[in-house]
Design a protein around this nucleic acid. Sequence first.
DNA 1: CCTTTCTTCGTGCACGTGAACGTTTATTAC
DNA 2: GTAATAAACGTTCACGTGCACGAAGAAAGG
Lengths: 353, 353
Amino acid sequence: MSAKDSELTGVKEIARRANVSRGTVDRVIHNRTGVSQKTIDIVNAIIKELDYQPNIFARSLASKKQVVFAVLIPGVSLETNYWEEPLLGITEAGAEISPYGITLKKYLYDLNDKKSFLEQIALIDLSTVQGVLLAPSFIEESEHFVKKLESRKIPYVFINSDIQGHDSLSYFGPDLYKSGYLSAHLMKYLVKEGEEILIVNISKEIDNQHHLLRKEEGFRNYFIDKKLTNPILKIDIKQTDYAYVSKSIEDVLQRHHVAAVFVTNSRVSTVAKYLKRSGAANRLLIGFDYTKENLAYLKSGDIDFLICQKPREQGYKGLMALYQFVVHAKVGEKNNFMPIDIITSENCDFYIN
Amino acid sequence: MSAKDSELTGVKEIARRANVSRGTVDRVIHNRTGVSQKTIDIVNAIIKELDYQPNIFARSLASKKQVVFAVLIPGVSLETNYWEEPLLGITEAGAEISPYGITLKKYLYDLNDKKSFLEQIALIDLSTVQGVLLAPSFIEESEHFVKKLESRKIPYVFINSDIQGHDSLSYFGPDLYKSGYLSAHLMKYLVKEGEEILIVNISKEIDNQHHLLRKEEGFRNYFIDKKLTNPILKIDIKQTDYAYVSKSIEDVLQRHHVAAVFVTNSRVSTVAKYLKRSGAANRLLIGFDYTKENLAYLKSGDIDFLICQKPREQGYKGLMALYQFVVHAKVGEKNNFMPIDIITSENCDFYIN
DNA sequence: CCTTTCTTCGTGCACGTGAACGTTTATTAC
DNA sequence: GTAATAAACGTTCACGTGCACGAAGAAAGG
């Protein structure tokens, strides 16, 4: 750590102990050719023994190589500007580490369009990339992509939603199951026993987004765990425009007496809009994310609660974790669940995304 | 920014343009002696023109100097472990920047003892310190200290509470006035018009801690702004032990019919303890901070709301701001108010301090 | 045995800055 | 005017690492 240990550390010391030159040690460290297996083993043993950490200052000085991170997340869409926030956090972290020679390349895909996800992936030149930060919105395609990353030994960090069973460096985002669970908990307080509850999934790609599915699972399991008898209805709405959404909701509300609505993503404002216009705003409405539209309906009383999970921090911390690993070889926690913030009209003015 | 600009930047280029040697430029940059005023002016002009930013890698490589930051905050006390959290954030940031040669020196004082604050200050050897992160709990003493820092041109960052009118680099903490204001807002929802409200300040050094005073001010002003008629009582309790606190509260409660209690700091658990024991827990109780004790009373229903303001993040961001300034000469926002989180028994399990 | 080729390794320069040391020029003292 | 001193500036090495170049030795082929 301290500068005085210089005689006991560094490539020079390793070389001295191994009775080889600095160049040879360097070759071992960088897995370059031209070293006998015997020497490799000796050097590696000493590296391990000394717990050698390369001096990143000297390294960056000597090498003109820039470290490049690819960022693969949704862009802002017409229906929601949610993804502005993670991007802000990412940009902030990017600015912080840019003095250390890190460059970001951003690839923004359309959350409504699986094809654009693949297109953006195709644009990433993996041979020039030392790490990837991604939101794995489409399960299968993401899995395929991260397998490619793994085979190339490129570290990657998930944000916003996780894919289990893969060797990601870490995950920063909600505990999806628990956010659904908490939403149910909140709802229980405000509906009476036996009243009907409606779950609304709005997404062109519902089946591919386990994001929504996990939340629904958590929500339902709360009612099961607590042995509550409220009937739970559900609709999947695969078009995101207002006309289609409102019609779908209307359909259900005509046939059922729904006391509370749970929208599994930030599209809750679309539902709020309909409920308000149709004069049915007295129903309890819970949804996700502190977007501009949602905020307006929260303030007007049409949305009762918004669940929010620090989108900006997800981006910031996700990128930082990647940086800490790639540059400093520091491994942090694998799962980093964001707090589940409950936003109401009372505290919304003080919330920071 | 990029490595290719190397010919156009750096000390070498400055020297070339000024027709002097690198050594002379170096002397100007570091305000060392041995350069004529004329040369100094020329070099400085060029530095400004080129917007020269020293290469921190080369700098740290060449210089064995360690950067030292002093951290001056309260230690954990018997009554509250609140200060664990800022310290955690500080330690986390410290670990992150330690590869860049930053060392922390921690000076923990007793929040209940003004003398210990002065003692810790006396321990700080300012000639070895390049920056200070502090919680200015005692107004006058803090002012005196930061004046000394200013005269030595040592940058400093406030956390937790701010002192106006000083040249701090920045502030990370609550907008005290607004947190009082929001508390009042919450309280309004749950008391009826005309019911009596009690403000409780618990601290050995109330008069010195504008922390408490500003919160009270915000709280009172809400009721004034909204033209509410609830009588507002107040007690200052200058001993922090349970016996004394409970007696003080009991005193008031016997003489008044109090519907709601607002405790201006984390000592709210002491009040909760009394209310619970005395069987008077049906009163609304609002206080501050996500401490272990408070959490227990929140879950048991004896505390209704906790206002919390990211103590850990205050520490983390405060130290980072200091680092960004000292090492990268980056100036961020001066006032960084933390979000005002409302913790209830519903979301407390998901909160991150 | 000599030449060629390949494997294995050592040496030296470069990165941009800090700082000690050396050199030149200007100033002062006698 | 000369020596002594001070002021102003130039030169050089060091920091730890990456990388190009080339050397030494072993292996292979004739």
